[in-house]
Design a protein around this nucleic acid. Structure first.
Lengths: 198, 198
DNA sequence: ACCTGAACACCGTTCAAGT
DNA sequence: ACCTGAACACCGTTCAAGT
């Protein structure tokens, strides 16, 4: 009985791992479960990632957290808005893997093309030298932080209890019916503040 | 030989757990290691946290991610700047526990007093109803995201290799000598953008 | 080169038992 | 009420072995 070569690839392994994490969370990502998903013994993964699970997690965050390149067309504001929205969507698609953001660095070679595009856009916006880097940084920080808040709000265990006090008149707006639409609205509203005024 | 009562408290357990996480990272937080740190058998913790490690992690993030209350004195801008800086410092002090931000929600009762203070400040800033919540949200998102970027930059394994290309003239500034000072500077520069202009 | 199978140290959690 | 000790299923990783 000739054995079929499994034909594992680093890419295929990372995809299978992300599929597990997206569906069941980081804690359920196990070398044995990953092996099962790939139709292979857990130890087969070590041949492609000799440093083991650590190296696998590095590859996963590199895949998930790589910021997209800003588009080439449009004025600087359109490009930055499109970029921010695209980055947000990409992060939310792999929300389960995002804790890795705090744990391992995104390699510079992966972050660089995106940064370059943002710098060019802010240059066109007329910011002076010092402010360009700060602005590119602040924009990325805003997107990342907004994703934290979104993921938290969507997390299980957040009970629909009203805030402990009704003192502030604006708090009624805090728990609207259509959550998705609201996060969208908040995101773009925040962008208005983070982007330079023309 | 009379046995000494260990005198465990939920608070004491959370503190010991945070001490381990701050020093060695989340992955090294183990019920048995935690027991050792407390001079107790691992299983003693279950008496104070019946839902086990999950409940312990909930208590930890509740402690770490609770945003401070904005100060009562000063004009709205001073109060918001002070708040943002204080929150940033608090988060950085427990950087090892921050991955939990993506995993479990911060209870509303914990987040509320801080939110209320921010809303009051933005009201004084003259924002209209709709914008007040958006602004309070955007400010928190910026602080959280900035902390992600800071923690990532400080993370091990980030090699001092120069960016792959020198096309953009501003990139020389990306890797300055005094990292700490630079992150401070960037943080306040970003605040200028996130806060409303007077 | 690519994958398996057995083995080891460690993990979270249970349960009955001690005081 | 508070903690221990033994036990169970599961985990990451090693190593020698198979093809």
């Amino acid at each position: 009985m000739t054995r079929v070569q499994a034909g594992l690839t680093r890419e295929g392994i990372v995809e299978a791992a992300l599929h597990i994490v997206d569906g069941q969370g980081l804690r359920r990502l196990t070398m044995r479960r990953l092996g099962d998903a790939l139709g292979v013994e857990a130890m087969a993964v070590y041949h492609h990632f000799p440093r083991g699970k650590d190296q696998l997690l590095d590859a996963m965050i590199e895949h998930v957290a790589a910021p997209p390149r800003p588009p080439a067309e449009g004025d600087w504001e359109q490009r930055l808005r499109t970029w921010a929205q695209a980055y947000r969507v990409k992060l939310l698609e792999h929300a389960g893997a995002l804790p890795l953001l705090f744990t391992r660095p995104v390699p510079e070679a992966v972050a660089f093309p995106s940064l370059e595009g943002r710098l060019a856009a802010f240059t066109e916006a007329g910011l002076d030298e010092e402010a360009i880097l700060d602005a590119a940084h602040a924009l990325a920080a805003y997107v990342l932080g907004h994703v934290i808040l979104e993921v938290q709000a969507e997390a299980p265990g957040q009970p629909p209890t009203p805030p402990p006090d009704g003192r502030h008149p604006h708090l009624a707006r805090l728990r609207p019916r259509e959550t998705a639409r609201t996060w969208d609205g908040r995101f773009t509203a925040g962008l208005d503040a983070v982007l330079p005024t023309r």
